[in-house]
Write a protein that binds this DNA or RNA. Structure first.
Length: 369
DNA sequence: GATCCCTTTCCTGGTT
DNA sequence: CAACCAGGAAAGGGAT
């Protein structure tokens, strides 16, 4: 009996340690702040321009012209075309790049990758080391793949490859960035600035894009789904792509400008994000936590003590208990990050202000209660 | 240093 | 009676 208890504690500690130290999520994963989307500080920067672009191979004049055309990005400036410019990058996520903005759909794909899977899919680590797999043809005429350091790589031809810096750590920064847009929207005289931002969301069912500017419309005609306050029900990631301000990399990787220190982008992992990560980690789901109804966003804590312990370790707080953790969770009710599930113990539900988290990307309609 | 935000801690009282 | 739930109040602490 004692041995069982000890081994269980040991297992919990190991589990907690694994999660804290080696989980898929790292607060260093480049959580962008609101300012990341500011035009003056592009997250995604073009590689080397035709003057400054150093491709993996030398550029031909034709390739240079191609790059110039992409940099001009005329096809991004037409709103009508924007609706069809969702660019598939992998089988399970979508990048929408336009007019200096990019948007990633289905962030849970990133969030729910545990460390092992992440490295399996994107084995290359470190700046300047890239994966040549998972190249996907985009509708904009280039191929794109993502790297583990939060960047992406773009290929404009058979041999022409160059690096772009794109922070794709969506789950955390999406609400903040989109929220900023809403704030701007509410600021008289400033919204015009964002008219070309092309923030919007993708209708999963009808496969069309809804630009954001109609914030006042809660429901979108033709769309069965409903946008939440942050507009992240369908499209949860925002960033900035500046095709007009090249940021050439130095030949020497050590001298390459750090586009945005991942440290600078970090913030503490929120409790609900921690919970979400556990839900996406096969090491803990369903042993410690599991979805009750994934589409509904309802989940159950199967081992509240262990989760509290793990959260405490995450926060370097050995005094954490489920009582305290649950109080923090209850504070989420007010902000609609979580919703109470009445009559069921240890069961919570993600609310409309949590990012769209379920893998099937179905956003639950507003709760009529 | 001030402020904001997100917890953390403690608490009372209620329910399962 | 233990475990959980609800929520007030105040403080801690990180980020800006």
């Amino acid at each position: 009996m004692m041995c069982d208890a000890l081994s269980e504690i040991s297992e919990l500690l190991q589990s907690a340690h694994d999660t804290v130290e080696g989980g898929a999520y790292s607060p260093d994963s480049g959580v962008s702040s609101c300012s990341d989307s500011a035009p003056s500080s592009p997250i995604l920067q073009t590689p080397r321009s035709s003057a400054g672009l150093n491709s993996m191979t030398s550029l031909t004049s034709e390739e240079s012209e191609h790059i110039t055309q992409l940099a001009n990005a005329e096809f991004y400036t037409d709103t009508e075309q924007l609706t069809s410019e969702w660019l598939p990058t992998t089988a399970s996520d979508t990048v929408f790049a336009s007019n200096g903005q990019w948007c990633v759909q289905n962030p849970p794909h990133f969030l729910e990758l545990d460390d092992k899977e992440w490295h399996h899919r994107y084995p290359a680590l470190g700046t300047g080391t890239y994966v040549d797999g998972d190249w996907v043809e985009t509708q904009a005429g280039f191929k794109m793949c993502r790297t583990t350091d939060g960047n992406a790589r773009v290929k404009l031809g058979t041999n022409l490859t160059y690096d772009i810096d794109i922070h794709i750590d969506i789950p955390d920064n999406a609400p903040a960035i989109v929220k900023k847009e809403i704030i701007t929207d509410e600021t008289p005289g400033q919204y015009e600035h964002n008219n070309n931002s092309q923030y919007g969301y993708m209708d999963i069912n009808n496969n069309h894009h809804h630009p954001f500017p109609s914030y006042q419309d809660d429901n979108c005609n033709g769309c069965l789904q409903r946008r939440n306050y942050y507009g992240i029900g369908h499209c949860a990631g925002m960033g900035h792509l500046d095709l007009h301000h090249p940021h050439p990399r130095a030949a020497n990787p050590d001298e390459r400008p750090t586009v945005r220190s991942r440290r600078q982008l970090t913030r503490t992992e929120r409790l609900w994000e921690f919970i979400l990560r556990l839900l996406g980690d096969a090491k803990h789901n369903p042993r410690l936590i599991e979805w009750v109804d994934r589409e509904d966003g309802t989940f159950r804590l199967n081992n509240s003590k262990a989760i509290a312990l793990m959260w405490g370790m995450r926060k370097n707080n050995g005094q954490m208990t489920y009582e305290k953790l649950s109080r923090a969770l209850r504070y989420y009710y007010h902000r609609q990050i979580l919703e109470p599930v009445l009559g069921k113990k240890l069961v919570y539900r993600f609310g409309p202000h949590a990012t769209q988290v379920w893998e099937n990307r179905i956003y639950r309609p507003q709760n009529p209660r």
